[in-house]
Design a protein around this nucleic acid. Structure first.
Lengths: 117, 117
DNA sequence: TTAATATATGAACAGATATTCATATATGGA
DNA sequence: TCCATATATGAATATCTGTTCATATATTAA
């Protein structure tokens, strides 16, 4: 089937405007990456705990009910996304949120979900 | 290795409070599902276009550079998540956003990404 | 130095998911 | 009725991703 424009509701000028305003591919990809981080139960759980306190890896594992390895892998993801930062004290590494946006976005989504109930 | 609490920074009372405030599993899962929808380039692109206009499937495919089938599959996902609604006119099905939250969340994330540049 | 502990990491595996392909369904026109 | 068009959908496939397992690294204490 040939794809063709069927717009009967909007003008081609409007279509052009919409196309022009479309964020570029890199921006879309960055946004998707950003949301993807929150689209996982484990990471969301870790983010919740880190929104409440600075915590070490073992404590995060205990609180989230995850293995130390799984937590460490996910923290690496969060670090690469610059959503968490860490601080070393002896052999213990303390993690905390690196961005106020995260917390507010988390709360925003929570409100959204709770509203729907 | 045995997981054990290493908390030296916060009291066990504080830990208890944090645990108690933890959203339940279902809520976390719902939030993750919610974010997951936005964590994909194709869906994010479709959502962008729908944030600008009511559009039929063929136009969405053309604008997003996706096949009709891929668009239809993703629209089904978005419909199940109640993020879009549709309206039938003959054989043409027009889609539009079903929730103002989506648009604001999209814009919030966009601002977040642009700020970091 | 040796042992113990906390964390990080590479590889393998399992499960999830986005796309394609073929086809079904639905509607309107000839 | 028969055909063309717009959309939906099931199955198969390929890719991505989260966890586990084993092990490496780093730090501290004995």
């Amino acid at each position: 089937m040939k794809e063709q424009c069927l717009c009967k509701l909007i003008s081609s000028e409007e279509i052009d405007r919409i196309k022009k305003d479309m964020p570029d591919g890199e921006t879309i990809a960055n946004m998707a990456e950003f949301f993807k981080v929150f689209g996982d139960n484990s990471r969301l759980t870790l983010i919740y705990y880190l929104s409440r306190a600075e915590l070490c890896v073992a404590d995060l594992a205990s609180l989230a009910g995850m293995s130390q390895s799984a937590v460490s892998h996910q923290l690496k993801t969060l670090r690469l996304m610059r959503l968490v930062k860490n601080r070393k004290e002896g052999t213990i590494v303390y993690y905390s949120l690196d961005d106020a946006h995260i917390d507010s976005l988390f709360k925003g989504a929570l409100e959204h979900i709770l509203e729907e109930k």
